[in-house]
Design a binder for these strands. Structure first.
Lengths: 111, 111
DNA sequence: CAAACATATGCATGTCTGTTCATATGTTCA
DNA sequence: TGAACATATGAACAGACATGCATATGTTTG
């Protein structure tokens, strides 16, 4: 009986609390994209102003190629968007949702 | 001159916008801990109720060892805390900051 | 104390990922 | 059109990581 109540609690969780595999993956994909120091720096830089690829590379003192790869990861996660202006592509955060999330995490990290 | 203005903008960003290496790492460490489907499921399960290690393993249909390893990662990131009650250790989210962050990310992921 | 149970941890392994180098693609302008 | 510049992409490699197995540690109770 105790066991049964126990199981009912878990059943409840499985059906309501824990997401399906694809949903969990979607959520973790976002976090995975933000879970790397270089990408954190890119995002925080873009929270101030939009920047070209070379500008970001200069700020972070990294190769153009490296930054471009990371921007692809951030694009795929729908965190940044790039807009071509002549030869350059200007990147910006896709919305300020992102900034809100970072503000909360920074609070948590600094605590 | 154009170049100089350009550089001033970047200087500004480097000193104000972009965090130091250790700070960026702290932030990304949080995100890294949440950037994995199993850990996302654990966190969402714990957002409903506290659970023992074996209960989590049962819910997620994974080995006890695997869950324990993941819980260590989440502990290290100060996302969960465990409290020993007899033979069992009951885990819960460290605060509801975590839930807020997840709510925002889920919104972003579902959009 | 010994047996049973719950959790933690070291090791091994297959997989994933961040970075650079070289090069391709796209754009401007002379 | 061709040279110069900005960005993207493929390959390769080193380092990181998730998981399971075996086992150690911690806790209760008979």
């Amino acid at each position: 009986m105790d066991k049964q109540i126990h199981n009912r609690k878990l059943e409840q969780l499985i059906t309501n609390g824990v997401p399906e595999d694809d949903h969990a993956k979607k959520i973790s994909d976002f976090f995975k994209a933000t879970g790397e120091p270089t990408r954190v720096k890119i995002i925080l830089a873009l929270s101030q102003t939009s920047l070209s690829v070379n500008e970001i590379a200069e700020i972070l003192n990294m190769s153009q190629s490296g930054i471009s790869h990371q921007l692809k990861t951030l694009r795929d996660a729908r965190i940044v968007v790039g807009e071509r202006l002549g030869k350059e592509v200007h990147y910006r955060l896709i919305d300020n949702h992102i900034v809100n999330i970072f503000e909360q995490v920074i609070k948590h990290a600094d605590e």
